[in-house]
Design a protein around this nucleic acid. Structure first.
Lengths: 218, 218
DNA sequence: CTTAAAGTTTAGTTAAGACTAAAAATTTAT
DNA sequence: ATAAATTTTTAGTCTTAACTAAACTTTAAG
């Protein structure tokens, strides 16, 4: 049995280790979990004893196969619930995170499968993140940061890197949503701001925004 | 803030105190919670300090107004989720309890309200129990135990007293459901068994069954 | 009306998951 | 290459919610 707290740590380790092959540091975990390094060490030991992570003192951790599956299961539930909240109840994409953080810990295989079916097997959540299937496979999408798109090129918004309520509300304000057509009109070398044409409306965005929007070129 | 454990105690005290005006005993609470009396005493003290129950040593507890509202809120969520599981996902009425026990603790006023709306404001759960509204009012229904119905009388099944999976499966087996037409053909004085006509099929049920089915006479 | 039985509370432990402070290991910089 | 800085771990404490065992109330029986 994996406790709620253990699930949260596994999820954090998964996200931190997602893009590096190197192991995840105690401090990084503590910071993301908004706790102290000593607490993280305690939990790491527990996860290690349960075979959910590979751990060597002072060398950080990596998820074991079982740990990876447990983390993905939680992430799968989180994202399915987000789809439910947005598509079935009238939540907006900036309101779902907190509630999904609670719902992701509900333990019922049947519930998850039935929910997935009820939602018509969605492949991504309201922020464009992929939803793992029941075997733990994560559909891969070829997306890149808007900041990397060259001047003159056209693309479609397919996801957000920062899914904080503040950023999502900013996007709402300027009618930027998943599926929006974006053309890069110009890039400013000085501050890395970009001028875009979004669904035919011109708008200049900062580096911060460009580095938190995922797009697909077409 | 009310913890998960506190919510479970409040719910138990509510159910135990439902039909008596007298206060609820420590032992009764401990038994329902499947814990020890000493643990119940500890929790009762905590609830008392939080103003959720009125407590006098050796004299049992009663819910305060705040405690009653907190208990009803949990019961409301439990029953709404049960409706969701049965009506929207394909759960049967004997499968919902365990999952609803988890879902009832999700904290989000918006979620509860949106869920209620999505389900079209149901007034009862899949077992015929009333669903409290957002103010904490519980719609009252005039129902009585089938065991109390006199020979020759006609009634409709409107609820179950025992909502254990075993009892619900028994009812499924003999096609007894909410809404079933029941006519009392005869009652056996010796063992209090009853012979019924249920949706035109004759069936003899034991005292145990008759005492766990709620009906409405018509 | 006193004593036995039953019910309740208190006192002292335990486990999980957090914390602080201090020690130990690793990394960085001179 | 060693000292300083940073990171990580250890040791000891706290809180929540459970437990056992013992003490104390209340209730029931004779």
């Amino acid at each position: 049995m994996v406790t709620l707290s253990e699930e949260n740590y596994l999820k954090t380790i998964f996200h931190l280790g997602r893009h590096e092959k190197a192991s995840v540091s105690t401090n990084a975990i503590a910071q993301k979990m908004e706790t102290k390094a000593s607490s993280a060490t305690d939990m790491i030991k527990k996860l290690s004893e349960k075979g959910l992570v590979d751990y060597q003192k002072y060398k950080g951790v990596q998820l074991s196969e079982n740990g990876r599956l447990a983390a993905i299961s939680v992430i799968r539930k989180h994202r399915l619930w987000e789809v439910f909240l947005v598509n079935k109840l009238s939540f907006s994409w900036d309101e779902v995170h907190e509630v999904a953080e609670q719902l992701e810990h509900i333990k019922s295989e049947k519930l998850t499968l039935e929910l997935e079916s009820f939602l018509d097997y969605p492949t991504q959540d309201p922020h464009g993140d992929p939803i793992p299937d029941s075997n733990g496979s994560i559909p891969s999408t070829q997306k890149l940061l808007l900041a990397k798109v060259k001047q003159g090129h056209q693309c479609i918004c397919v996801g957000v890197k920062d899914s904080s309520s503040e950023f999502l509300k900013y996007l709402d304000k300027y009618k930027i949503a998943l599926g929006s057509q974006i053309k890069v009109i110009s890039k400013e070398a000085y501050d890395e701001s970009m001028t875009l044409k979004i669904n035919d409306i011109q708008k200049t965005i900062s580096k911060e925004v460009a580095q938190n929007l995922f797009v697909k070129t077409n």
